[in-house]
């Protein structure tokens, strides 16, 4: 049976070596893969469509910061289908 004793100096030396390796490593930029999972793809599409079709830069330049924040927070927050009869009025007493 063998045993290994890890000393404080051992951890310091390994940490230093890892730091050196990270420092000299060549970092190659990678494109962000937004298709990596179905969930992420849906997320990005939804975020894009919330503001993507709207001229947000134009509104930002013509509204006060408060108004723009409220507008941005308001539009497109929900993502539900709307049917024309959703606006039919509810008359609570028309059940006879």
């Amino acid at each position: 049976m063998t045993s290994t004793t890890y000393t404080k100096d051992y951890f310091i030396s390994k940490t230093f070596a890892a730091g050196v390796l990270l420092g000299v490593a060549t970092i190659i930029p990678q494109p962000i893969d937004i298709q990596s999972t179905k969930h992420e793809t849906v997320f990005f599409i939804e975020q894009s469509s919330r503001y993507g079709a709207i001229d947000m830069d134009g509104y930002k330049s013509t509204m006060t910061p408060f108004a723009f924040a409220a507008f941005k927070d308001f539009i497109g927050e929900d993502n539900f289908e709307i049917h024309p009869d959703d606006f039919d009025v509810f008359y609570p007493d028309d059940e006879v």
Partner: peptide, 17 residues
């Protein structure tokens, strides 16, 4: 204007804006 799945979302949100 609240619902981005609405067929008139863009028009309604733009009008609000």
């Amino acid at each position: 204007a609240r619902n981005r799945a609405s067929t008139t979302y863009k028009q309604a949100a733009s009008l609000f804006g």
